[in-house]
Design a protein around this nucleic acid. Structure first.
Length: 661
RNA sequence: GCGCUCAUAGCUCAGUUGGAUAGAGCAACGGACUUCUAAUCCGUAGGUCGUAGGUUCGAAUCCUACUGGGCGUGCCA
C-alpha cells in the first residue's frame, strides 16, 4: 500500500478539467513536515494558478480542486492553508483497516511488482588473492541491501560478483609460489600461505617501484620548487587585478610540492622497511627484476601457459574460499560469480564487433573507441595486445543482456570510476545495447578519521576481517556486561551472548555505512560505529527486543491478535498510537524511495524513525495494563506489526535481529 | 589546463528532487528508573545552509561568478 500513489490517482481525476498535464501536478503530493498540517499535502494549486493565466488565486484553484476531489472514503475533508496548500489527513478508520490488513498479509502491506524483466546488480567485485579491507565494505553492503530490497518489491533480481580473478595479483602469487613457496606448506594451509606469499612479493614489487621512482620524484620536486619560486615572483610583481590569480597559483604550487614530498617520503619509508627487514632485505637484492617478472608471469597466464594455468586453477578455489568466509559471515550471497576470467575468451570477439561497426580505431598502436563527448578515448586493446577493464566490461554487458533479460543493470562502484562508466554507457548506446537502463550506482570515498581519503597503498589499512572481529568484541562488551546480564531471566548462556554480539556488531558496521547517503564521502570511525547509542542499528534492534518481550508476556501470536481485534475492535486513545500506525503504513514508500534513488539510507532512516515512534508509544501506551480489551487489542496489533516491519526492514539491509538483548 | 563533485549546529550526518518555523545523533546542561528491558524517554541551548548575485508566489535545493576542499584526466582495475 502506497498512500501517495492512491492520492495521486484521485487527484488525477479531479485535475482532468483544470489542466492537460494532470500527472505532473498530481505528483506534487508530499508527506507533511509538521503533523499539525495533516498527514499529506498537495502543492499543485500554486503552480497551477500561475500557469492557468486566468487571474485566479492559488486558494481559488485549491477550492475548485477540493470540490472535485473524491477522498471521503479514506480522508477527512481537505483543508486549504497558507498560500494554497491542500492538507490531507487520513481517517482513523482507514489507518485501523490498514493495520488489520497488514497483519494478515505476510508482506507488511507492501504490494508486489509484476514484471518479467530482471534487475542485474553488479557489486562487491573484489580482487581475489588480495586481502579484503575496509574499502570493500561500501560496494558489498550497499549492493546487498539493494538486491534484497528490490527482490522484496517483486523484481527478479540477479546478483553478480564480478571478481577480479585474472589480473596482476595472480602473477604475484604465481611468482611467489615459484620462488618462495613450499608446496607442502601451501598444501596444508593454502589460504594463509597464499596470502603470505602475496604480501611478500607485493612488498618487494613496491620496493622496486619505489626505487625506480626516486629519480623521477626528485626531479618532480625540483620542478615543483622552481614553479613555486616562479609563481612567488609573479605574485610579488603582479598588478592588483592579477594578484588573486597569482596567489592562487602559489597555493597550487605549494600543494604540488607538498604532495610530491609526501610521495617521496612514503617511497623512502617503503624502501627502508624492506631493507631493514632481515627476511625481506636479502630477497630484495636477489630478486632485482621482480616487478617486471611478475608482469611476465601474468602475461604467460593470459597466453595460456600450461604451468601457470595449472597453478591458477589450483589457487583460485582457495582464494575464493578466503573471500567466501567473509561473505558468509556478512550473510551475503550471490547468484553468480562470473569473474574476469570467465569473459576472457569473449574479448577477441568484442574487438571484432567494434571494428566491424567502425567504432574502434588504431591510435599509437592501441585500439581505441573515440567518443565525441569525451576528450580521451576508451582504450580497448593496449599496444602490447592485452585487453583492458573496458573490454571485459563490454563483453560482460553483452553476456548479461542475452543471459538475464534485464530492464536495469546496476553497477555498485566507487564514484571515482564515473568517467569510465560514462564512456562505457556511451559505447553501449552505439553498440546497439540501448534497451536497458544502465546505472552507475556510485558511492563516495571512505575517509580516514583525519578526513583524508584512505589510500589502498598506505599499508596500514584495517583488514575487513579484523574490523568485524573488533566490532563484535566491542558489541559483546557493551551488551553482555555482568550488570545487564543479571537482569535476564532465564540467564543467557554463552551461545546466546555470542549470537547477540555478532548480530549487533556486524549490524553496527553495516548500518553505519547504509545510513549515510551513498554519494557522500564518509568518515570511518570504528568507535562511533560500535558505540551502540544514538542513530545505530542497536537502537532498532533494542526496540525489536522490547516488542518481543511484550508479546511474549501477553502470550499472544499473530493469529491471536487478529482474532482479538476482530472481537473487540480497535480504538486510538493516544496520539502516539496513531502516529506510529501512520509510520507503519509508510513502509512501502520507504522501499520505493530506495529503488528510485538506489539509496538504502532511505530505508535506514525509515527504520530509525519508526523505532523512535515506537519508543514514544512505549513510554505513553502500556499494552498489558490497557484499560479495555479494545485498547489492548489495538496496542497488541501495533506492537506485532511494528515488530514485523523492523525485522523485515533490518533484514532488507542485511542486518539480523535477536529476540532479547 | 580541462572535467566531475562537495561545502548545512562545536563534531558526524539527514534533508522525500522547488514548499509552510532547516532536522537527527554525539558532545553540553536540566529532569525521569518499586519499569511490558534506562542500550530508553522528556526538556534547554546550539544555524547568515561557504560568499555574492540571479530565476519566482516560494531556494539548503535550480542558474552564474567567486572562495576553499576532494576526485578524475590515453594504454591499472
Amino acid at each position: 500500500m502506497h498512500v501517495p500513489h492512491l492520492l495521486q490517482q484521485r487527484f488525477m481525476d479531479a485535475l482532468s478539467g483544470l489542466t492537460d498535464q494532470p500527472e505532473q501536478y498530481a505528483s506534487m503530493i508530499r508527506a507533511t513536515s509538521d503533523p499539525k498540517h495533516g498527514d499529506y499535502q498537495a502543492n499543485c494549486a500554486m503552480p497551477l494558478a500561475k500557469k492557468s493565466g486566468e487571474g485566479k488565486s492559488p486558494r481559488e484553484i485549491a477550492s475548485e480542486l477540493v470540490a472535485k476531489l473524491q477522498l471521503d472514503d479514506f480522508c477527512d475533508p481537505p483543508e486549504i492553508a497558507g498560500p494554497g496548500f491542500i492538507n490531507l489527513k487520513l481517517k482513523d478508520s482507514f489507518l485501523k483497516n490498514s493495520l488489520a490488513n497488514m497483519l494478515g498479509d505476510g508482506r507488511c502491506g507492501v504490494d508486489k511488482v509484476e514484471t518479467e524483466k530482471s534487475i542485474v546488480i553488479d557489486f562487491s567485485s573484489p580482487n581475489v588473492a588480495k586481502p579484503m579491507h575496509v574499502g570493500h565494505i561500501r560496494s558489498t553492503v550497499i549492493g546487498d541491501a539493494l538486491a534484497r530490497t528490490l527482490r522484496f518489491l517483486g523484481y527478479p533480481v540477479v546478483t553478480d560478483n564480478h571478481l577480479g580473478d585474472w589480473g596482476t595479483q595472480f602473477g604475484i602469487i604465481i611468482y611467489g609460489y615459484k620462488h618462495f613457496g613450499d608446496p607442502q606448506v601451501v598444501e596444508a594451509d593454502p589460504v594463509t600461505e597464499l596470502a603470505k606469499l602475496y604480501r611478500v612479493v607485493n612488498q618487494l614489487v613496491e620496493y622496486r617501484k619505489a626505487i625506480a621512482s626516486l629519480a623521477k620524484l626528485a626531479s618532480m620536486i625540483e620542478k615543483a620548487r622552481e614553479f613555486l619560486t616562479q609563481t612567488q615572483g609573479e605574485e610579488a610583481n603582479a598588478e592588483d587585478k592579477q594578484r588573486k590569480k597569482a596567489r592562487k597559483a602559489v597555493a597550487t604550487a605549494e600543494r604540488r610540492l607538498a604532495g610530491a614530498e609526501a610521495v617521496l617520503a612514503s617511497a623512502q619509508a617503503k624502501i627502508a622497511a624492506v631493507e631493514k627487514d632481515p627476511e625481506l632485505g636479502p630477497k630484495a637484492k636477489e630478486h632485482a627484476t621482480i616487478h617486471t617478472d611478475v608482469l611476465e608471469e601474468t602475461a604467460k597466464l593470459h597466453r595460456n601457459d600450461d604451468e601457470n594455468i595449472a597453478l591458477w586453477n589450483r589457487f583460485l578455489p582457495h582464494c575464493k574460499d578466503e573471500i567466501n568466509r567473509i561473505y558468509s559471515r556478512l550473510d551475503i550471497h550471490f547468484d553468480h560469480t562470473l569473474g574476469e576470467s570467465f569473459y576472457h575468451p569473449m574479448l577477441a570477439n568484442v574487438i571484432t564487433e567494434l571494428e566491424e561497426l567502425d567504432l574502434a580505431a588504431d591510435s599509437n598502436g592501441a585500439l581505441c573507441v573515440f567518443l565525441p563527448e569525451f576528450d580521451a578515448p576508451m582504450i580497448v586493446r593496449k599496444q602490447d595486445g592485452a585487453y583492458l577493464y573496458a573490454t571485459t566490461d563490454l563483453a560482460t554487458l553483452q553476456y548479461r543482456l542475452v543471459e538475464f533479460n534485464p530492464s536495469e543493470i546496476l553497477y555498485v562502484v566507487d564514484t571515482r570510476q564515473s568517467e569510465h562508466f560514462d564512456k562505457l554507457f556511451a559505447i553501449a548506446d552505439h553498440f546497439g545495447l540501448q534497451n536497458v537502463k544502465l546505472v552507475h550506482v556510485n558511492f563516495g570515498t571512505v575517509l580516514g578519521e583525519d578526513g583524508r581519503p584512505m589510500k589502498t597503498r598506505s599499508g596500514t589499512l584495517i583488514g575487513l576481517e579484523s574490523l568485524l572481529d573488533d566490532a563484535v568484541a566491542r558489541a559483546k562488551q557493551v551488551v553482555c556486561n555482568t550488570e545487564r546480564l543479571s537482569a535476564f531471566d532465564p540467564p543467557m548462556n554463552s551461545d546466546e551472548q555470542e549470537k547477540i554480539a555478532e548480530a549487533v556488531g556486524i549490524g553496527a558496521i553495516k548500518f553505519a555505512d547504509l545510513s549515510h547517503h551513498r554519494t557522500s564521502d564518509y568518515r570511518f570511525n570504528l568507535d562511533k560505529m560500535v558505540a551502540l547509542e544514538g542513530n545505530t542499528s542497536a537502537y532498532v534492534q533494542y526496540s525489536y527486543a522490547r516488542m518481543q518481550k511484550i508479546l511474549q508476556n501477553a502470550n499472544m501470536d499473530e493469529a491471536g491478535v487478529v482474532a482479538m481485534i476482530q472481537e473487540h475492535g480497535m480504538q486510538f486513545t493516544h496520539p502516539a498510537e496513531r502516529s506510529l500506525v501512520l509510520r507503519l503504513t509508510k513502509f512501502e514508500e520507504a522501499l520505493v524511495a530506495v529503488h528510485k534513488d538506489y539509496a538504502p539510507n532511505q530505508l535506514a532512516d525509515y527504520l530509525l524513525e519508526t523505532a523512535k515512534a515506537y519508543s514514544r508509544f512505549n513510554e505513553n501506551c502500556h499494552v498489558l495494563k490497557a484499560e479495555t480489551e479494545s485498547i489492548r487489542a489495538t496496542r497488541l496489533a501495533i506492537v506485532t506489526q511494528c515488530k514485523q516491519i523492523l525485522e523485515k526492514g533490518l533484514g532488507l539491509l542485511g542486518i539480523d535481529v535477536v529476540p532479547r538483548m
